[in-house]
Structure formats: structure tokens, C-alpha cells
Design a protein around this nucleic acid. Structure first.
Length: 943
DNA sequence: GCGAGGTA
DNA sequence: TACCTCGC
């Protein structure tokens, strides 16, 4: 082996363990013994991936040991901001030690020095001996050590690929001339995590500017006369702190530790020992991955050559050569192949591409014989409206998948798609996909309808664990212990240099696309029985799956926007903002950036001293949120101007200026996307753009709804459930006082106020009604006395009293809440009227805050979730009716308790009646569900 | 309370 | 990343 072949990898252990742990924070891996194995799994998986991908010749894992630290002598607060280490990470250490030992990987650490310094020292020493060194860490501090032979190896961020930073990459990324300047850069801007203070008033942008202008901390401090104003004062005042910061940011290269290369040879692991540990931790597929990482013959020979150790095991079977075997083995042969393999190394997978129409037809006839088939589409864009097919993959058996490349030529593409039409439109085969709505919409562009029974693994997992994450790669790692190829490995990072999948060769496309179908099929096999166990099949097949198609149609339809009005309003807002801004500058006696809460806080509280007891946020900044400012409005006239500025700025940036950019050129409409799996309560969310938060509260804001217009010859119909959540609380809890109020058609907030204050309905004042309304909402959103006090301006005791008398008014409500908490404690979950479950694992937590949070969810989730269930049912029924009655009316939006439609003028009456009827009867209740309908030329008029 | 998204 | 604000 020549010296240039020596590749040393130094792994920053704790950084990698933390990453692994937090990667799974939303649904942690818990073994049957109750051990949280997220950290161990995350670390070990990354390690194995690294070995598989890069085939290191030398490797070591570096830990921090002990407490003392050379940096503490300089600065007592160093790293004081680091949170206490979570328990699962502390528990992980011994397991990781055992695994590393079994893998024959050396563990380094030096008492009194940080892992950073050990890595730095070894890296420098190894470099001198001709090694190519890779520092495996996500921590940007290490960029300072990068040279021609020392590189940073940043592990993959979620879904992404690993990133290797050499000298050029570091220079480009941080806009510096020399990696060493990272030290000056960090010293200037500081680092909140490591509690490096940095220079006062210097953030990322200023630090970059300084580096370009002055090159180093010392040179900057020697030339502060070139700076101006506030910045000059601040930098000069904190010069000493800056120099100290630079020292703290420096990684040592001369820690007292030697680099003895023999100790770092990577050896073949003791597979048996590793397996024992993995078995205990219930890492199913990880062992296969490890085996595969070492199952390449050349690699093992290389490792064996490089040292004199005998491998502990030597049955290296080459991995199965997947993909492009000659056309055309019979399907039976291929299937045979996946069942007869026995050893793990052999039992890989068969991914086959099929580009000949004849073979494709055979595949289709084969697909039609199956009970369940998974499919996936590969496209040119994530935007379904412009996406063109690059290929499709199919799988109906673990380890076996087919890939169909599709021509760039639209006509040829359509021909290929037509071959598969019988499959997509078949009524019997269950069609499985991950995030099926996407594929559904793409296929709609090819005039294909996905019919028959469907199964979306993303939505299935959402029903099983609504609080978790549902990405395919994530689920694969979580449930299959298998990390699929990341798309970025194939086509590069996001950005202008990213290729499309079409630009990589067909075998590579096949490996990627077929794997997705394979993985999704395996997830289906896992989730389908789980849905039955969780009693979620009806909700899944009768609500969420049909709803998916309804949402797809809504998204494809889009909403028409009046872009002329928006353009005009943008100019008006701009003018109004300018006027307000100059008024504010005048009142404060200084010009500053109004959009920076930090600067605003300093002006109001440091300079103007508007509140000597000003509240701070958790990062030590002054809080300047609306409620805080509201309370100060009597102190100074500047406040009302600031509040108005904030409002107009929000309207302009978020709506008036942003919406026109989202208009689709082809049909002049905006097409939102409804996320069906993000809100844990069962609600939908709207993204790109979010059309569920269009203003309504203020007059000026409302005008924006006027820009959502009906097409010529049509009208907008808005239909919303009146007080659906409160009606459901009354219904579910059986609270008679509330039920009666609704049955009598009373104004529920006024009615609540009357009872709350013991007065007649006619005597209720505006303030009293508004307070009652706040309490009602507090109940809906699961808030406590604290939040209520915040919102009403009442004192904590008053708020508490208010809540107490609320419960006296509605006694069943309190009982109901207690029952829900009890249910969560007994069963581990609560559920909605349609059986949508929310698991509350923290309901018995010993941490008061965490437990209280779970308790609020126990009460709140069934209410919000049931309302979500009901409107989902209504949407499905309405869409069915519109279709069977062959009406032209289109559903445009769902805003939690409101539906928006666009109807031809001659259909308005029919549609209005139909919509109201279906919504009010979507689910049978004792408390009447009331729907208010409005019609107009735009959303403002209709609402 | 939960979402999305804008800005520094 | 933190903060703020829009909706329900």
C-alpha cells in the first residue's frame, strides 16, 4: 500500500451520538425492555454507513473524558450553555463502547482535553506521516484545521448526502481566504452553543465582512478607527472579549498524545460479538449492513494487507449483483431467486429495469395477478403541475422490484404509461405508494386515474403515530433498519448544479427507484396489520384515502387571484409603511431596522426606557411581541405606530407580495398543497402557499380576501361550521347547559358570559362576552390559567377564579376532562369520534411540565380531531355528490371549519343547498351542527 | 394549543 | 436559529 492510500477517519463521538439521538427525537427507538436506543442506533448506523461508503483503512472514535478542560482556565462560562446531556445518551456510552470494541475500533480520549483537541492533534500528526485525514463531525469549528490532506466529513443531514469539505469548499462556504481564518470568524461572531461570546454587535454578516476587509481579529482591532458609529464603539469596547473568543475557538494541534499508526488499523470486526450486542438492542437489519460493509473482497484484502492481523471471520460473499441482468429471465425465475437465498450477503435484492414494451406488458399482466402492488414515480420536478415522468417502479414482494424508464419525448412517454393504464385503473389490486397524492397528481397529467383500493404508507404511519415523522427514508431506518440511497448521492445537492434523475444512467436510476418501491412495499406489510390492531382501518380506508383524492382535485383546481389588485395594494402598503417608518424614526430619534426585533427592543427599552422591568426572551433579547407592546401603548405614542407598522409589513410580505409569485402561469391560479400528515390532531395544513391563514381579523387584512375571486360567470361560495368545536365539546361531554344553549340557538359566548357572571343574557356587556369567548377558546385550545391570564389581562388569581366558575357553569366539562386524562393514563391514548388515536406517552411523566402538556392534549385532541374528522367526512360526501350530479362546482379550499367553492352562476342555488345539507349531516349528533353559507364574487363578499 | 412563513 | 404574527 502506498502512503497516498492511507485514509484515517477520526470520529467526533459525542457530536455523532447527539445527532443520532435527535434524529429520532420525534419517535424514539425504544427496545422492548424500555431502553431508548436512538443514540446508539444513530451513531452505529452512521459508522457503518461511513465504512461502507468510504472504506477507511484507519479509523478511531474520539470521546471527551473527564470534566477538566484547558479552556476553563481562560473562561469559566465556556460551554456553560450546553444543555444537560439527555439520559439516553449517557446510557448509550457503555453500549457504544462494547460495539466499538467488538468491531476492533480504537477509542481515544485525553483527560483534561476536549475531543476537538485530540482530533486536531492526531490529524496534524497523521498528516505529517502522509495520511489523508477525515474529521467526521458536523461541527463547523473543525473547518479551521482543513488543509490539502485534512478534510472535514460532515455526516448527512436529514435526507441529504454527506458533505466533504476540503480547502476550496471551506473557502467558498465561509467566504474566506484561508481555513485558518475560521478561528477569527468564529471569534468575531461568537457561538451561542459553545458560549463563545464574540465581539459585541457582530453577527454572521458583519463577521464575514470584517474577515474580507481586515483578514484577522488582531488586524481588525488594530484598525477600529476605520469603523463608524455604534459598531465602532461596540467593537472597541469588547476587544478583549474578542481576543479571548478567538482563543476559545482555536482547536489545539499539540495536545500530549502520540499518533501510533498501527493502533488505528481498521480490522474486520468480530461479527459474532457484534451480533450479540445488536440482538440485545433489537437492531434487526443493522447487522446485515455491517456485514455488507465488509463483504467486499478487495476491501477485506486491502485491510488484511495493511496489517498482520487475521480476520476474525472470513466468509466474504460478494454482494449480489443487482440490476441489469440480461433480459429476460422469466418472472418466476426472478421470484425464485429472492426466496432461495439464505445467507444475508446473498439475500440482497433483485432490481430489474424493463425498457422493452413487450416485457412491460408481461409485467402488467403479472401485476394484475397480485393482491397488492406498490408503485412509485420518478419525475423531473417536485411541483406536480410541471412534473414529467422519468420512470415508474413496482414491487409486490420484499426484495424484488422493477423499474420502467420513461422517455423524455412526451408522446413516447404517454405510450409507455398507456401500457400500465390497465394496472392503475384496475379495481381489484390494492395500489400502494408512499405519499400517493403526489404520484396521483403526476399521473393525472397523463390522464391516468388511480382507481380501486389504495394504500398510502405515509398516511398509514400518520394514523399509527400522528406525532411522529413520516418520510420514507426515515421510516425505513426506523422500522426496517435500512438506509435507502439518498437522492442527493445521485444528483447532488439542491441548487443550480443539481441534476435530474434522468441525467444518471439507467442502472443507477433502477437501483434508486426500485429500492423505493421495495422499501415502501415492506413498510406496507408492516403497517397494514398495525392499522387493524389500532382499530384504524375504517378511518384509513373510508376517510383518509378517499380524502386524499379529494385533496388532489382541490390542489389541481387552484384558486383565481386578482393580481392587479395585489400589485396596487403592494404600492399602497409601501407608501403607508414609509410614512409610518419616518414617524417612528422621528419619535425615537434614531434610524434603525424596524424589521429587527433585536434592534427595536434596544431602542424601546435601552434607549427610551419605556419599561424598566421589560421582559426578556429566553435568549436574553427584549421581548417585543404584540401583547408586550400592547401593554405599553399608553406609555408612548410610538407604540401604536410600531404595531401598525408590524401589521402592514406582515400583510405586505406574507400575502400581498408573496401570493402573486405563487400564481401558476398556465391557468393564472394558485395551487396550494394540503399536507395530510403533519398536524397531530388530524387537521390538515396548507403549504406553498399557506391559504389557511389569509387575514380576517383587521379591516385592512380582510381586503386581501377580496383578491380571491371567482372566474367569469362563476361565484364563490363559502360555507363554515358555526362553533363546531364548542358544539362537539358539548356533544362529547354531554354537558346539558351547553347543549341547551346550542339547541336554543343562543350566542354561545354571550350565553357563557351570562352564566359565568350570573346575569341575564340581555345584560351581557361586550367585555364580558369577550372574556367568556376567551375562556371558551382556551378550552378548545387546551390552554391553562396562565395562558388565559396572559390573554385577558386578568391577574393569575382572577383567571383561576374565572376558570373555576366556568367549571361550575359547565360541570360535566370538568368531569369529561378528568375522564380523558384517566383514559390516556389507562390506555395510553385518547381518540376522536371516528377512532383517530393520539398516543400520549408522557401522560405519566414525572416532569410536571411535560405531564401537564400531555394532559392538555388528552382533552384537546379528541375535540379538535373530531372537528377535523367531521369536515373530512363532509368533503368526501360533497365531492361524491358533485360528481354523481355532474355539477361543475369545484371545491377550492378547506380552512379547518370552512369550505370554499367556485360555482357557475346557474349552479349556485343547487350547490349551496347541497353543501349545507352534506356538511350539517356529515355526522349525526344531538347538538345540531350549523353551517353558514355565503355567496359572492370573491372570498370577502362570500364570507 | 397547532400549524406556515417572513425576516434578521 | 430565534422571534414574530397570521389563521383556526
Amino acid at each position: 500500500m502506498t502512503s497516498t492510500d492511507k485514509r484515517l477517519y477520526l470520529i467526533d463521538a459525542y457530536a455523532m451520538i447527539f445527532r443520532g439521538y435527535f434524529a429520532f427525537i420525534k419517535n424514539p427507538r425504544i427496545s422492548t425492555k424500555g431502553l431508548n436506543t436512538s443514540a446508539i442506533f444513530g451513531f452505529t448506523n452512521s459508522l457503518i454507513e461511513l465504512i461502507k461508503r468510504d472504506r477507511p483503512t484507519h479509523l478511531a472514535v474520539v470521546f471527551d473524558v473527564g470534566r477538566t478542560n484547558v479552556r476553563h482556565d481562560d473562561y469559566a462560562d465556556y460551554k456553560a450553555n450546553r444543555l444537560e446531556t439527555p439520559e439516553p445518551i449517557l446510557l448509550a456510552k457503555p453500549y457504544i463502547n462494547d460495539i466499538l470494541e467488538a468491531m476492533h475500533i480504537p477509542i481515544l480520549g485525553l483527560e483534561g482535553y476536549e475531543a476537538d483537541d485530540v482530533i486536531g492533534t492526531i490529524a496534524c500528526k497523521a498528516e505529517k506521516q502522509g495520511y489523508n485525514v477525515f474529521m467526521v463531525t458536523p461541527d463547523k469549528d473543525f473547518a479551521q484545521l482543513v488543509t490539502d490532506k485534512i478534510k472535514m466529513y460532515k455526516p448527512s443531514s436529514k435526507g441529504g448526502d454527506i458533505e466533504i469539505l476540503g480547502v476550496e469548499e471551506v473557502k467558498a462556504k465561509y467566504e474566506i481566504e484561508d481555513p485558518k481564518q475560521i478561528i477569527d470568524y468564529l471569534g468575531m461572531m461568537g457561538d451561542a452553543v459553545d458560549n463563545i461570546p464574540g465581539l459585541e454587535g457582530v453577527g454572521e454578516k458583519t463577521a464575514k465582512k470584517f474577515i474580507q476587509e481586515f483578514g484577522s481579529m488582531e488586524n481588525l482591532l488594530a484598525n477600529t478607527h476605520q469603523l463608524k458609529g455604534k459598531l465602532k464603539e461596540k467593537v472597541e469596547a469588547s476587544a478583549e472579549r474578542g481576543l479571548l473568543s478567538k482563543k476559545l475557538a482555536t482547536i489545539l494541534c499539540d495536545a500530549p498524545i502520540e499518533f501510533i499508526e498501527e493502533q488505528y488499523d481498521l480490522e474486520v470486526p468480530d461479527f459474532e460479538k457484534v451480533k450479540e450486542i445488536f440482538d440485545e438492542l433489537e437492531f434487526r437489519r443493522l447487522y446485515e449492513n455491517l456485514y455488507r460493509a465488509f463483504s467486499n473482497k478487495e476491501y477485506v484484502e486491502e485491510l488484511q494487507d495493511s496489517d498482520n492481523h487475521q480476520p476474525t471471520t472470513n466468509n466474504q460473499n460478494p454482494v449480489h449483483k443487482n440490476g441489469t441482468m440480461d433480459l429476460f429471465a422469466s418472472f418466476e425465475q426472478l421470484e425464485q431467486a429472492t426466496t432461495t437465498k439464505s445467507t444475508i450477503a446473498e439475500n440482497d435484492h433483485i432490481y430489474q429495469f424493463i425498457d422493452n414494451p413487450k416485457a412491460q406488458k408481461i409485467l402488467v399482466s403479472n401485476l394484475l395477478k397480485q393482491k397488492a402492488v406498490c408503485f412509485d414515480t420518478e419525475t423531473t420536478s417536485l411541483n406536480e403541475l410541471e412534473a414529467e415522468l422519468i420512470g415508474m417502479s413496482f414491487s409486490y414482494k420484499k426484495g424484488l422490484a422493477y423499474y420502467i424508464p420513461i422517455s423524455e419525448n412526451r408522446e413516447e412517454a404517454q405510450e409507455t404509461v398507456e401500457i400500465f393504464r390497465p394496472f392503475f385503473e384496475d379495481q381489484n389490486v390494492l395500489k400502494i405508494a408512499h405519499n400517493l397524492k403526489y404520484d396521483y397528481k403526476v399521473l393525472q397529467n397523463y390522464n391516468i386515474d388511480v382507481e380501486g383500493k389504495i394504500f398510502d404508507t405515509m398516511i398509514a404511519h400518520y394514523l399509527l403515530n400522528p406525532d411522529g415523522r413520516h418520510g420514507m427514508d426515515y421510516l425505513s431506518e426506523m422500522y426496517l433498519d435500512y438506509k435507502p440511497v439518498s437522492i442527493e448521492t445521485l444528483i447532488g445537492k439542491k441548487g443550480k448544479n443539481q441534476l435530474t434523475l434522468r441525467e444518471v444512467d439507467i442502472p443507477t436510476q433502477t437501483n434508486y427507484a426500485a429500492e423505493d418501491a421495495d422499501v415502501t412495499f415492506q413498510l406496507y406489510e408492516l403497517f397494514a396489520p398495525q392499522l387493524a390492531k389500532e382499530n384504524a382501518e375504517k378511518l384509513f380506508y373510508d376517510v383518509e384515502m378517499p380524502l386524499m383524492k379529494v385533496l388532489a382535485k382541490i390542489e389541481l383546481t387552484g384558486v383565481k387571484l386578482d393580481s392587479n389588485w395585489l400589485a396596487k395594494e403592494s404600492i399602497d402598503l409601501e407608501n403607508d409603511l414609509k410614512l409610518l417608518e419616518s414617524k417612528i424614526f422621528e419619535l425615537s430619534g434614531e434610524e434603525f431596522n424596524m424589521n429587527s426585533p433585536k434592534q427595536l427592543g434596544e431602542i424601546l427599552f435601552d434607549k427610551m426606557q419605556l419599561d424598566p422591568k421589560a421582559k426578556k426572551t429566553k435568549t436574553g433579547q427584549f421581548a417585543t411581541s404584540e401583547d408586550v407592546l400592547q401593554k405599553l401603548s399608553s406609555k408612548h405614542e410610538i407604540i401604536s405606530s410600531i404595531l401598525e407598522y408590524r401589521m402592514l409589513q406582515k400583510l405586505k410580505s406574507t400575502y400581498v407580495d408573496a401570493l402573486p409569485g405563487q400564481i401558476d402561469k398556465k391557468d393564472n391560479r394558485v395551487h396550494t398543497t394540503f399536507a395530510q400528515t403533519v398536524a397531530a390532531t388530524g387537521r390538515l395544513a396548507s403549504v406553498n402557499p399557506n391559504l389557511q391563514n389569509i387575514p380576517i381579523r383587521t379591516l385592512r387584512g380582510q381586503q386581501i380576501r377580496g383578491a380571491f375571486v371567482a372566474d367569469e360567470g362563476k361565484k364563490i361560495i363559502s360555507a363554515d361550521y358555526s362553533q363546531i368545536e364548542l358544539r362537539l365539546i358539548a356533544e362529547i361531554s354531554g354537558e346539558q347547559n351547553m347543549i341547551k344553549a346550542f339547541q336554543n340557538g343562543e350566542d354561545i359566548h354571550a350565553s357563557t358570559a351570562a352564566k359565568l357572571f350570573g346575569i341575564d343574557l340581555s345584560e351581557v356587556s361586550k367585555t364580558q362576552r369577550s372574556q367568556a369567548k376567551t375562556v371558551n377558546f382556551g378550552i378548545i385550545y387546551g390552554q391553562g390559567a396562565f395562558a388565559l391570564a396572559e390573554q385577558t389581562g386578568l391577574s393569575r388569581t382572577e383567571a383561576k377564579k374565572m376558570i373555576d366558575s366556568y367549571y361550575e357553569t359547565y360541570p360535566r366539562l370538568k368531569e369529561y376532562m378528568a375522564e380523558q386524562v384517566k383514559k390516556a393514563q389507562d390506555l395510553g391514548f385518547v381518540e376522536t369520534i371516528l377512532g383517530r388515536r393520539r398516543h400520549l406517552k408522557d401522560i405519566n411523566s414525572s416532569n410536571f411540565v411535560v405531564k401537564a402538556h400531555a394532559e392538555r392534549n388528552a382533552v384537546n385532541a379528541p375535540i379538535q380531531g373530531s372537528a377535523a374528522d367531521i369536515i373530512k367526512l363532509a368533503m368526501i360526501k360533497i365531492e361524491n355528490e358533485l360528481e354523481t350530479q355532474k355539477l361543475e362546482t369545484k371545491m377550492l379550499l378547506q380552512v379547518h371549519d370552512e369550505l370554499l367553492f367556485e360555482a357557475p352562476i346557474d349552479e349556485v342555488e343547487t350547490a349551496t343547498t347541497l353543501i349545507k345539507k352534506e356538511m350539517e349531516s356529515a355526522f349525526e349528533t344531538k347538538v345540531p351542527l350549523l353551517v353558514e353559507v355565503g355567496v359572492g364574487d370573491n372570498w370577502l363578499e362570500a364570507h
